[in-house]
């Protein structure tokens, strides 16, 4: 058998969810040993493949596991891995499709699908915020035509539950306290990195919309009306203006605003 054909055959067998001891053509290309058959030998690699990938996802998505429960989580991971095996040299990327996949496979999460989706999105945002690049922040001089890009490690999430309160609990080692009860509510969240640690910060809807608009490349003069339109019904112009000021101050404080890539040097 040619090397490429052999490798395709073997990896296809490893990717099967059922153990090769049950159903495998391993004997066609693997020798039996004195103590183990060809299938049993392949089985060592099969267990290792699934254990390593499951463990990697379990480490990255502990809140998702807490939301859907251990048994459902195990089935969910296997279904996900069948659809999305690793296409990266690093296991860090293994869960990158999980939020989108879960959106399409609500049956995998059961009754708590929305909370599960929130957890998956938040935990993937954590993975990204942890190690993506940081750009030098700018001390913004705010004009109507000012354009910014957002700090690459900043992730903005609109969630439908209080799943952000769950994360510190499931990440804490040696947890003995019961997990906090999830509430259905709109949560606008910034996931970002400061001093090499990842933080979550709840935003009001105005701040969230403003940052989202700036991140999409709108100049400040166009982003402001979009943000103002997100103000709660009945808000006074003064309170909306205060919220805008607070949002820009927060973004400046955490260094979330950077020069867009095409900006000419000052």
């Amino acid at each position: 058998m040619q090397l490429l054909e052999l490798q395709r055959t073997m990896l296809a067998e490893l990717r099967q969810p059922t153990a090769p001891e049950d159903n495998s053509a391993a004997a066609a290309y693997l020798r039996p040993g004195r103590r183990l058959s060809a299938r049993e030998r392949l089985g060592i690699y099969h267990r290792s493949y699934w254990a390593r990938l499951r463990q990697s996802l379990a480490e990255d998505f502990p809140a998702l596991r807490a939301v859907v429960g251990r048994r459902r989580f195990a089935a969910l991971l296997d279904a996900y891995l069948i659809d999305h095996p690793s296409h990266s040299w690093t296991l860090r990327d293994l869960g990158q499709h999980l939020p989108a996949w879960l959106e399409q496979h609500r049956e995998q999460a059961g009754r708590r699908w929305r909370a599960a989706l929130d957890a998956a999105r938040l935990e993937w945002a954590y993975v990204e915020a942890y190690d993506v690049a940081a750009l030098p922040p700018i001390v913004a001089d705010f004009h109507a035509d000012s354009r910014f890009c957002l700090q690459p490690h900043l992730r903005l999430l609109a969630l439908s539950s209080s799943v952000d309160e769950l994360l510190p609990a499931v990440h804490r080692d040696g947890r003995t306290q019961p997990l906090p009860r999830l509430r259905r509510e709109r949560v606008w969240l910034a996931v970002h990195r400061a001093d090499d640690l990842v933080y979550y910060r709840r935003l009001d809807r105005i701040a969230f919309t403003l940052l989202q608009s700036l991140g999409r490349g709108l100049p400040l003069g166009q982003a402001l009306p979009v943000a103002c339109a997100a103000a709660p019904r009945g808000s006074s112009p003064e309170s909306t203006a205060d919220a805008i000021h607070a949002a820009l101050a927060l973004a400046t404080q955490f260094g979330w605003l950077c020069s867009p890539p095409d900006a000419s040097p000052a």
Binding site: Q2, L3, L4, L6, Q7, R8, M10, L11, L14, R15, Y45, S48, Y49, R52, L53, S56, P85, S86, H87, S88, W89, L91
Partner: peptide, 25 residues
Amino acid sequence: CWGSVDGTYSHDLLPLPYTWEAVER
């Protein structure tokens, strides 16, 4: 060892057949 084929990664150190083709490659 080998560990990936057609862009799919096993994240394992999989054994090679000890062939001349594998030596060359």
